Simulated assay, not measured.
Amino acid sequence: MRWLRRAVIVVIARPIARMFTGADIIGREKLPLKGPAILVANHSSHVDTVLLLTIYPSKALDRVRPAAAADYFLKGRLMSWFSRNILAIVPVARDRAGAGEDVLAPAREALAAGDIVLIFPEGTRGDGEELTRLKSGVARLAAAFPDAPVTPIWLQGAGRVLPKGAHMPVPMNCTVLVGDAIHWGGDRAAFMEEMRQRLEALKALAPPQRWA
């Protein structure tokens, strides 16, 4: 099934993503190409996941797995098949978080297998302009894999391509900024604050959009 995933993303999704996002990639060389590794990005659109998959070289693509809400991405037979086999999601059962279940177990298993796990620590889509509160799940994963690099990524403009509640994408200039990786330092609060600062710094570096 890996060949099918690679073909769909490289042959179909990548050209479509380029057409609708016109994405400029800054710092692509900082992307980890092997795992275990963690990618942390802001979240404003369903375009985010596909866009980040399409910027990866095809040889490393097999290892990139986005963490995604099981209640949405595994809803319905077709959506579930696409999410598991093409997006290769790491399912997060966020509705069971308060029931004592370890909802991060699938992400830990993926990291233990040497995968690159993509996390949106805001937990849900924002407006793409301001970074909302970050959830600490990424810190727990970093603590479990202290040698894994945690790479911050800022996505500018993706929320305008397919904003929350919209059903049809519109062309929009986007920028993907990849920052220097950080590592777990032993303190959860300090780690989360550094992650927020890195994301905010990348946002500040984003060039003006070519059109609004």
Rank of each mutant, 00 (worst) to 15 (best):
K203M: 11
L74M: 13
E109D: 15
V161E: 03
K164L: 03
E101I: 15
V150R: 05
L39D: 00
R2L: 13
G179K: 11
L4S: 00
R18I: 03
R140G: 04
R28E: 00
R65W: 02
W3I: 09
G123H: 06
P106F: 04
V117Q: 07
M1P: 10
D102P: 14
A143D: 12
R140A: 05
L177R: 03
R28T: 02
A142C: 08
G126T: 11
P36S: 01
A107I: 13
V50T: 05
I153D: 00
V11S: 06
F73I: 04
E129K: 11
R210F: 08
F145S: 01
W154F: 10
V40F: 01
W211N: 05
V8Y: 00
V138R: 03
L31M: 15
A13G: 01
A37P: 12
R94C: 13
E29K: 09
A99N: 06
L177N: 03
D62K: 06
I119D: 07
D127S: 09
A68M: 14
R210P: 04
R77H: 12
A88R: 09
L141Y: 13
G179C: 11
H183W: 12
A107G: 12
I182L: 15
A204V: 02
A93H: 15
A212S: 13
A181L: 11
K75G: 05
S83P: 09
M168T: 14
G186C: 04
V90K: 13
G22P: 01
D147R: 14
R125M: 02
F191V: 04
H183E: 07
T175E: 07
R84C: 04
A99S: 14
M19N: 02
R5V: 03
E101H: 14
R140Q: 09
Y56F: 15
G22N: 07
F20N: 07
T124H: 07
P207E: 05
A41E: 01
R160V: 05
G157N: 12
R140T: 04
V161M: 03
L53Q: 04
S83G: 06
H183F: 15
G159V: 09
E194R: 14
F73H: 12
R96P: 10
E109N: 13
A97N: 12
L162R: 02
L33Y: 05
T132N: 11
A37K: 06
A110S: 14
L111E: 05
R65D: 00
A70W: 02
P15N: 08
A113K: 14
G128K: 10
Q156M: 08
H46N: 10
E109F: 08
D71T: 05
A212H: 14
V176F: 00
V11R: 06
R63A: 01
F82V: 13
K135R: 15
I9T: 01
L53K: 02
M1K: 08
A158E: 03
A37W: 06
G114M: 09
E200Y: 02
F120R: 04
I116C: 00
H167M: 12
